[in-house]
Simulated scan of single mutants.
Amino acid sequence: MTNQAATKTGPYAEVIGDPIAQSLSPLIHGHWLEALGIAADYRAKHVTPDQLQGYLEARKEDPNWRGCNVTLPHKLAILDHVADPGDVRSAIGAANTIFRLEDDGLGATNTDAGGFYTPLSATDLSGRHAIILGAGGAARAVLFALKQVDIGKVTLLARSPLKALGLLGQFGLSGDVLPMDAPLPAADLLVNASPLGMKGFDGNLDLDLSKLAPDSIVYDLVYNPLETPLLGAARQAQLETIDGLTMLIGQAAIAFELFFGQPVPDDAAIAQALRKKLLAALDQKS
Rank of each mutant, 00 (worst) to 15 (best):
S126V: 08
G107Q: 05
F144N: 13
G17V: 01
G197A: 07
A139F: 01
Y219C: 05
Y55N: 10
L72H: 12
A187R: 03
G169T: 13
F256Y: 08
S160Y: 00
F99N: 02
E227A: 15
D202V: 09
L190V: 09
L106I: 04
P214F: 12
D206G: 07
L157R: 11
L157A: 09
D103R: 07
A193Q: 01
T71A: 11
D112C: 03
A281G: 08
I132P: 00
G105W: 10
A108Y: 12
L106S: 10
N192L: 02
N192Y: 06
G107P: 08
M1F: 11
H31D: 11
R59D: 02
H46K: 14
N204R: 12
Y219G: 02
A253E: 11
I242K: 13
L209G: 04
R100F: 09
P11I: 01
L209C: 10
E57R: 15
K211W: 04
L156R: 02
A35R: 14
D243E: 15
L101F: 03
F260P: 00
L221G: 09
R100W: 08
F201I: 14
F171W: 02
A21L: 10
N3K: 06
F259P: 02
D206R: 13
I98L: 15
L190T: 08
A187G: 06
A58Y: 01
H74Y: 11
L167V: 05
A193N: 00
K147P: 02
P229K: 00
T48Y: 01
G86K: 11
S126M: 03
L162W: 00
D80Q: 15
E240T: 15
